[in-house]
Lab assay of single mutants.
Amino acid sequence: TGEEYIAVGDFTAQQVGDLTFKKGEILLVIEKKPDGWWIAKDAKGNEGLVPRTYLEPYS
């Protein structure tokens, strides 16, 4: 389980392990790392690192 967040901007993977997403996408945050990069999963089940500055809590 995780917390749902909504993307407030588009993000394109910079390196292997990053997750590309579009503004408005709902992501499930699995782990919040202290460096500001969180592990998240998208609706298709893809998992990767995302920058927390692009996310806001979804309710």
Rank of each mutant, 00 (worst) to 15 (best):
G48P: 00
W38Q: 00
E31R: 07
K23P: 03
D42I: 02
E4T: 14
K33Y: 10
K23Y: 07
P51S: 14
G36D: 09
D42Y: 01
K44P: 03
Y54P: 02
Y54K: 09
D10N: 12
W37F: 11
K32E: 04
F21C: 04
Q14R: 13
G48C: 02
T12G: 06
G36M: 07
K22M: 09
E4Q: 10
D10R: 03
T1N: 09
E3G: 08
F21K: 00
G17D: 05
G24W: 06
V50M: 01
G48F: 03
L49M: 08
K33V: 07
G17A: 06
T20R: 04
I6A: 05
N46P: 01
P34E: 15
Y54F: 11
S59Q: 14
A40K: 00
W38G: 01
E56I: 14
A40T: 03
E25S: 11
A7C: 05
K32I: 07
E4W: 15
G17L: 05
I39T: 09
T12V: 11
A40D: 00
A40H: 00
I39D: 02
I6T: 06
E3Q: 13
G24I: 01
N46L: 11
V16A: 15
I6R: 11
T20Q: 09
E56D: 08
E31F: 09
W37R: 13
V29L: 05
T20N: 13
Q14S: 09
N46Y: 09
K44S: 13
K44G: 15
Y58N: 08
L55T: 01
L28I: 14
E47C: 06
G2A: 13
F21H: 01
A13P: 07
D18Q: 13
K33I: 07
D10P: 06
L55H: 01
K33S: 07
K44F: 14
F21S: 01
D18K: 10
D35R: 03
A40N: 00
G2S: 10
G9S: 14
G48D: 00
P34A: 09
Q15R: 14
G48S: 01
G2V: 11
V8A: 08
I39Q: 07
W37K: 10
D18M: 10
F11K: 04
E47A: 11
L28V: 10
P51D: 13
T53F: 06
E3W: 12
I30G: 03
K22S: 12
G36Y: 06
L27T: 00
Y58A: 10
E47W: 14
G2Y: 10
L19V: 03
A13R: 07
D35K: 05
V16N: 12
A7R: 00
E31L: 09
T1C: 05
I30E: 02
T20L: 03
I26T: 06
D18E: 13
T53L: 10
T20V: 04
K22Y: 10
G45Y: 04
V8D: 02
K41P: 00
V29C: 03
A7N: 00
I6L: 10
P34C: 07
W37P: 05
K41C: 05
G24T: 03
L28Y: 12
I30C: 04
F21M: 06
V29D: 00
T53K: 11
V29E: 00
V16G: 12
I26N: 02
G48V: 02
I39W: 15
I39P: 02
A40V: 10
I39R: 14
A40I: 04
G17K: 06
K41W: 07
L49S: 15
E4A: 12
Q15M: 14
G2R: 13
Q14L: 12
F21A: 03
A40F: 02
I39M: 09
S59K: 15
Q15L: 10
K23A: 08
G9L: 11
A43E: 12
L49Y: 07
E25T: 08
E31W: 11
V50T: 03
K41T: 07
A7Q: 01
E56T: 08
A40Q: 00
T12K: 09
G17P: 04
E31T: 12
Q14C: 06
P34G: 13
D42P: 02
G9D: 13
E56Y: 09
L19M: 09
K23H: 08
L28N: 10
P57R: 08
L27N: 00
T20D: 08
L28E: 07
G36L: 07
K44V: 12
E4D: 08
E3S: 12
T20W: 04
N46F: 14
G9C: 05
F11Y: 14
Y54V: 09
D18C: 06
E4L: 12
D42L: 03
L27P: 00
E3F: 09
W38D: 02
G45C: 04
W38E: 00
K44H: 13
Y5F: 09
L28K: 11
G2F: 11
L28P: 00
A7D: 00
V50H: 00
L28S: 08
G24L: 03
P51W: 08
Y58V: 10
A13H: 04
L49E: 05
P51I: 06
T1R: 09
E31Y: 11
K44E: 13
Y54C: 08
